[in-house]
Simulated assay, not measured.
Amino acid sequence: MSESSVTGVSADLQGPDRTSHPSQTSQQYWTEAAHTGALREVGLPEPGPGELLIETLYSGISRGTESLVHRGEVPANITETMQAPFQLGELPFPVSHGYLNVGVVRQGNESLIGETVFTLAGHREHVVVPEAAAHVVPEGCTPQRALLAGIGEVGLNGLWEGPVLVGDRVAVVGGGLIGLTTALLASKMALQRLQVVEIDAERRGFIESLGLEAVAPEEASPDNDVVLHSTASSAGLASALRLAGDDAVIVEQSWYGTAEQQIPLGADFHARRLRIVATQVGQVPGPRRMRRTRGERLATALDLLDSRFEMLISGHSPLSELPAVMRDVAAGAPWTREQILHVIDHPLAEHHAFG
């Protein structure tokens, strides 16, 4: 599944009846209808017992899933499963979705006030989450890099799902946000081979600058033990099947929404005993789920973000421009095609000298 396929801990935590200072306002991004987003001005939300009020510095656009949400392409039978952890409203709309947020704790546990934390919240100037859902950004990790913790969780889940093991030959098909995050995490392992398969030559050059091997589909090595696919396209999945060795696993990290795909399962798919495995971050892959909570998995992903992940940040826009930015992202406007992680700067960020 794609990066925002996470189940909710508590939906609608910040409804209009949970405001503490009506005279103080806060901005929230909402998808009001298909292809229509807007900023709402609401009262400042109030934390309850065991909760934190966080003022957002940055939020990040998870392009694949948030585009599906913006276009109204979430299948009706899985809207509950696909809700973001701290979304407001209900899918398909109106809904305030998203799950990459870094901010500063303003109210709650006194020992955390002033700390910079990552949460699986969305594009809202202020968010309220349970204390256990806020992860303090490690020393040396910039707030912007910390936005990638939610994507790192997706990549880590995919590697566990394979599983990818020491000495493996691994291909990552797709050099987008999910694929590159997964590949950077995989590069920390002692693998026999790791290739990122990408059709765009310019993107392959960027991938090489990350210290990863990038190849065109026709140049990729076959006989892989695990192939991780994240292009959300039939052609990409066909490449993943072709690159898998006998008895190998293809981990499907894409989320297709309502789009139907043609999967080439003829030829030697059965004869080579290939397996396509779904991965969805709402659950920790078994058997690790017996020993890891989702919170522990997220904390691990946050700790694994080295300085290379900073290079995945490809652009910035202020919160005031988010409705127009999301429209362009969901429509595939030319300028968005070069984006990997597009960061939304909230008003608080303008007053801090963060990297």
Rank of each mutant, 00 (worst) to 15 (best):
V251C: 00
E260Q: 15
V6S: 14
A299N: 05
S20F: 02
L100V: 13
L243F: 06
T7L: 13
P49C: 01
P45A: 02
V172K: 09
R242F: 00
H316R: 12
H123T: 07
A353D: 06
V154A: 07
S59L: 01
F269V: 04
Q253L: 05
G179N: 13
T231F: 03
A267Q: 08
T231M: 05
A353C: 10
F354G: 15
L305Y: 06
G332C: 09
G114R: 03
H123G: 05
T119W: 08
M290L: 08
A240D: 01
V173E: 04
V173Y: 04
R71V: 10
E110F: 02
T293S: 15
A134T: 00
T258C: 04
G266Q: 09
S23P: 11
L312M: 12
E3P: 02
E350K: 04
E218Q: 06
I178M: 10
M290A: 14
A259G: 08
A133M: 13
L194K: 11
Q262Y: 00
G72T: 06
V325M: 14
E350I: 05
E153H: 03
Q262W: 03
I263M: 02
P92K: 12
Q83R: 13
S59H: 04
G122Y: 11
Q27S: 15
Q192N: 14
Q283E: 15
H316K: 07
T181Y: 01
R169L: 07
R272I: 03
H123Q: 03
Q262T: 01
V325P: 03
A301Q: 07
L241V: 09
V164C: 01
T79R: 15
F309D: 02
P138F: 07
L305H: 10
L265Q: 04
F269H: 02
I199L: 14
P16Q: 14
E90I: 06
A121H: 14
S67Q: 08
G108C: 05
I276D: 04
P22T: 06
G175D: 08
S62F: 10
L274Q: 07
L184Y: 04
A183F: 05
A134D: 02
P285N: 07
G167E: 15
G48E: 08
A186P: 06
K188R: 11
I313N: 12
H97I: 06
P287C: 09
F269I: 05
P45T: 03
V325N: 13
S5D: 14
L184D: 04
S26T: 15
G140Y: 05
E202I: 08
P323T: 08
L304Y: 12
E115F: 05
L237D: 01
P163S: 11
S2T: 02
V105E: 08
D303R: 15
A186H: 10
N157R: 06
L53D: 11
S62N: 15
L68N: 03
V215A: 09
V154H: 15
A34S: 12
Q28Y: 13
E110W: 04
D328E: 05
G211Q: 11
Y99E: 07
D223T: 12
